[in-house]
Amino acid sequence: MASRTALRVIEPGMCTTVQDLGRPGWASVGVARGGAADALSLRIGNRLLQNEDRAAAIEMTLLGGAFACERDIIAVLAGGEIEARIEGRGSTHLASTWAPFELSAGERLVTRSIRGGVRTILCVAGGILVPPLLGSRSTHLGGQFGGLDGRMLRPGDAIEVGEPRGRCADGSAGARARALAKPMLARRSLRAVDGPHRHCFDSAAVKRFWSTRFEVSLQSDRVGLRLNECIGSANFGGRMPSEGMLHGAVQVPESGRPIVLMADHPTTGGYPVVACVAAVDLPALGQVRPGESISFETVTVERARELYAERERILEVELPTR
């Protein structure tokens, strides 16, 4: 299979990594699933290019990067709205988020700040090729493995791309993708279900949790979103024995200021979990900017399952898998 360098990193941006849909099934050796913080955008971007949902792409955070194209490719920017232009030898034109574009050898893709949301995913027809580890090409920054040498991209890095699977979607698919994704990713009232340790909090703390508009701390990353407001702590009478954690779990440490666990969360933890963000709103969670406000909206587990199924149904209608 032909695979040569297609992109060369000129500027990587702020926190730019290779991500796919992650590596499920390794929690018992301490490895969380990880993968794209906004998996919905990754899947939509891949569908626009006729890739498999799980094809690897480049996830950029807050500030995009600049890439020199060394081989003709078709790509799309998905997720947070990003300023992007394609610089050719004589001409420059803009690339809109959600609209697939061609990038020819010798051209540069220059992306700047991410405005609507916090993460933009650069998908390429054929997918980013790095050696899979534990069944995934995702970068595990904490474990320093996966992706490109287990780290963020750096200037000079060569990015290899696989063979495209077919013709890329037409222009109307990009418009459908945008119409579908934007409202889902813009939600800042996140649907959540009661957490496993809800009973360890007094009713005032639980009430505060569901009614507070939280400001997201600047100290937030792929591991967790830290929230600035205090809801009060759990009555545990000592430390809680460590137990399994999950993407979207809202942990409350002694400080009373919740931490929402993200894709690269520790597999186990010792803080009580007051609520868990529903799977349908995890992509929106991955698009919350530090400094933004979020709140939580209570739903039952049954409703959370329905919401997820509804979203999958819409996705399959609007952008079917090939």
């Binding site: 929690a27 018992s28 050796v29 301490g30 904490g142 474990g143 520790p266 597999t267 186990t268 933890g269």
Partner: peptide
């Protein structure tokens, strides 16, 4: 058990 971080 193994948990928290890879291999811990």
């Amino acid at each position: 058990f193994i948990g928290f971080a890879p291999g811990f």
